[in-house]
Structure formats: structure tokens, C-alpha cells
Design a binder for these strands. Structure first.
Lengths: 190, 190
DNA sequence: CTTGAAAAGTGATTTAGGTCACTTTTAGCT
DNA sequence: AGCTAAAAGTGACCTAAATCACTTTTCAAG
């Protein structure tokens, strides 16, 4: 466990500096969780008690429409944060599903604990501020790609940006992430 | 100007508390700017020196594709923040246009000043952290709406969420925001 | 290794929405 | 008030992608 917490500390220290004392305070606010492939981290209608930092593994966050079709909001792997941020922030029942595409391990942070460490340790507030800002920028670019790019170039863009992901995830899920049908993506592929 | 700064202070204090001393320090890091309708706040290829908080007015942030078509990333009005966050964050030339749909006034915050006030005043770091988090949540919902909803329901959703906006913005721009052609939106409208 | 299921590929058909061309309406300016 | 330009509406046609139905390939579990 020590080594896993060390990874998390490194994740923070890529962005801000923490004293040992600060880190000890911070780390004590995380819980460990481990799930097998196909198990759910978050489910629609269930409480969303945590934000999760992924130690290892791979998850998909998605919603299901009226027709039962799956739409992928996010893939998240090692070193990523994932949650139903909306439900989490407002402490409401989940609006999306998050489940494991591989056996995965997480550090879990509750809303209360997040606010506590942010207001106690300014560096942590800055860490989450900067992280959140990066996340915002990424989502803006995804929106622009959905508005401006063809399916084909969106796929190429993703291939470039996250080549490792493509190898770990079935193409039908990539299609769902790109907002296109499995069949159409398959035709571009070849 | 005092009253305008007061509005900005209120904007901060909706989320965090600031002492008078802190506020005086914070406000001194903003610049004022005023633009007429049709003038540009940000242009592709130009430096993006600031993030802008809108005192009054309305702007659109958009990119132009190879075919010359405009795709709207964001509308922003009173009390909103706007910038080319990506270019701003990395201090690179602008990748989008932002121009005024109405005469507008702004408080401008440079990257250097933002980091300064965030690291000097923890409450400000928390303010931007929380703001950024809300922004992230909004963008996630927009992505989900682009992936899961039909044009018609996206339009209804927007009507519900921002009824005031619809009245201030030509429908062809709404269409561009929704990722649909002017003509198609018009047919749903009626 | 075998086998059953999931994933991927592919053809035929349908459809939502785009594009083009034109008309009508609205709104801003002098 | 009158005029111009932008916005909005609308019909005809076109196209990219969805859908459906089926086959082939890959992969994982016994």
C-alpha cells in the first residue's frame, strides 16, 4: 500500500509541492478500493460517495439512452480521476454508470474530505484547480472535435492522442466514444 | 468602476469569503476592458493574454472550419468567464475567435496574475477550483447531450437551461452551438 | 486444444440532417 | 418612416451515417 500511496503523492507533486506533514494529512483522507473486470464503480440511481483516482486498471463512464444504447463519456486509466462529477458534487444519485474494463484499483476521496484537504492545505486546492482546468480544456477540445470534425478525423485524432487506449478497448466502445456506430467506424478502419 | 469591482467581489464571495485586505490585493490584479459589438476579444493566431470575466454584454467563442463554417464553443454573458483557455494556459497563439454580440465590458486577468493571487490567497485558489469544477461538469453534460440527444431535444434542453440567451442570440448561432444547420433547426422550431 | 461468446467486418436499405436556392420576415440605421 | 441587410422560413434534392441482417474473426475460459 505504501508504494501505491507513493504513486498518488507523485501525482500531486507533478503539479504542486507538499511537505511530508502535509502529505500525511492529505493521504489519510483517501480510502483504497479494488474491483474486478465488469464490476461497477458507479451506477445510475446509487449514491456517488467518492471521486476516484485510478492506481491501475481501466474503466468506462457511460450513460444508457432510452433505446438502451451506450454512450461513452470517458475512458479512464492509471493516473486518471473519474467519478460522476455532477452527482458527486451535488451529492445526488448517480446519473451514469462507471464500470471496469480491466481489474482495477482506486484511491477514493469523499466530497467532505476533498473540501477538507483543499481548505486545510492550499497547495491541494491549487492542485485540484489546475487539474480541473486541464480537464475543462480537454472537454472543450472534445466538444470542438464533435462539432467540427468528421468521424474519420476524430478517430485519427484519438489514435494519435491515446494510442495505448485503442489497444486496450474494443473498437465498438471507441465508436461509442466518438458518437458513431460500430459499423461506420469499422468501414473507416479498413 | 468601484461598483463594477463590487460586482466582481460579489462573484467571488458567492463561493468563498475574502477579507477586505485580501480583496484589495486580488482586485489590483485585474484590468478593465470595454468593447463594442462585433469587436474581437480573442483572435486565431494572436496572443491570448487574459481570461475575461464579463461585467456586462455577450460574446461568442467559436472556431472556423476549413469550409469557413462557424462552430460555437460557448456563449458567455454577464458573470461568465471566457477565454481561449487552452491557448491561455499554455501561453500559445489563439486557436479560436471570441467576439462581441453586444457592447461588452470585461475584467481581465493574466495568467501570471491568476497564479499569483491563487498562491497568495488560498480562498482564491478554492474559488477557481470550484468554478472550474462546475465548468467541467457543464461541459460533460454538453458532451452527453451531443452524444445522446436528438437535435430537437438538445434545443428544448437549451431553451430550458438558458431561456434568456435564446432571446439575445440569432437562431442561426444557436444552431451552430447545437451542431446543426440553420435550416434544420428552423424546421423543428415551427 | 476446443468451443462458445464477444468483437469485428460487410452488404443492403433507410433516414436524419445537410445543402442549395429562393422567399418572407425582422431589425437596425439614417 | 423607409431602406437595406441580416435573419428566418421553406421546398427539393443529396449524402453521410444509422440500422438491420448476416458472416467471419478473435479471444477467453474450461
Amino acid at each position: 500500500m505504501e508504494d501505491k500511496l507513493q504513486l498518488l503523492r507523485q501525482h500531486f507533486e507533478e503539479i504542486v509541492s507538499l511537505t511530508d506533514e502535509e502529505w500525511n494529512f492529505v493521504q489519510s483522507h483517501f480510502e483504497f478500493k479494488s474491483l474486478k473486470k465488469h464490476q461497477f464503480l458507479i451506477q445510475v440511481g446509487q449514491p456517488v460517495d467518492f471521486e476516484y483516482w485510478i492506481i491501475k486498471g481501466l474503466v468506462k463512464a457511460y450513460s444508457i439512452d432510452e433505446k438502451g444504447k451506450e454512450h461513452i463519456l470517458q475512458f479512464a486509466m492509471e493516473d486518471y480521476w473519474v467519478s460522476d462529477h455532477c452527482a458527486f458534487q451535488h451529492q445526488e444519485p448517480g446519473t451514469i454508470f462507471v464500470d471496469c474494463l480491466e481489474d482495477s484499483e482506486f484511491f477514493c476521496l469523499s466530497l467532505e474530505n476533498r473540501e477538507k484537504i483543499c481548505f486545510e492545505v492550499p497547495a491541494v486546492a491549487n492542485f485540484f484547480r489546475i487539474k480541473s482546468n486541464h480537464g475543462y480544456i480537454n472537454l472543450q477540445q472534445r466538444i470542438l472535435s464533435l462539432l467540427t470534425m468528421t468521424v474519420e478525423s476524430r478517430y485519427e485524432y484519438l489514435l494519435n492522442k491515446l494510442p495505448k487506449l485503442i489497444q486496450r478497448v474494443p473498437k465498438k466502445l471507441i465508436a461509442s466514444y466518438l458518437g458513431v456506430s460500430r459499423e461506420t467506424l469499422s468501414r473507416f478502419n479498413s
